[in-house]
């Protein structure tokens, strides 16, 4: 095992625990927005697609990387926008003062 792999595995292990801890106490009300929000976050795969495109040699690799970038971008952009629309529903409306939190 090289040093880089050990470093990566350490980051991975810490991120697993962090992922569990972060949402351990989420109310049911937020389950759907949270799923949608984390769904957008795994769109980080776009970064990988960009790096692969940046080093692609053959036409086939370029095509694969291009489609991967499109997919990743749809995941990121669509994911965050849909989540924002959902959460917009929870905004307190000034015209409804009787609305409790």
């Amino acid at each position: 095992m090289n040093a880089e792999l050990i470093f990566s595995l350490t980051i991975f292990a810490l991120a697993v625990f962090l992922g569990f801890e972060l949402i351990a106490r989420v109310p049911t009300l937020l389950h759907t927005p949270l799923m949608s929000g984390t769904n957008a976050i795994h769109g980080i795969v776009l970064v990988g697609a960009m790096l692969v495109a940046g080093t692609a040699d053959s036409t086939l690799e370029q095509v694969l990387a291009f489609v991967a970038i499109v997919f990743g971008t749809v995941n990121v952009v669509g994911g965050f926008l849909v989540t924002d629309r959902m959460l917009d529903m929870f905004r307190r409306r000034p015209d409804r003062p009787d609305r409790a939190e």
């Binding site: 991975f12 991120a15 697993v16 992922g19 569990f20 949402i23 351990a24 389950h31 795994h42």
Partner: peptide
């Protein structure tokens, strides 16, 4: 990994 872990818990 954050999504993998939190998604599993969810």
């Amino acid at each position: 990994t954050l999504v993998g872990a939190s998604g599993t818990l969810l």
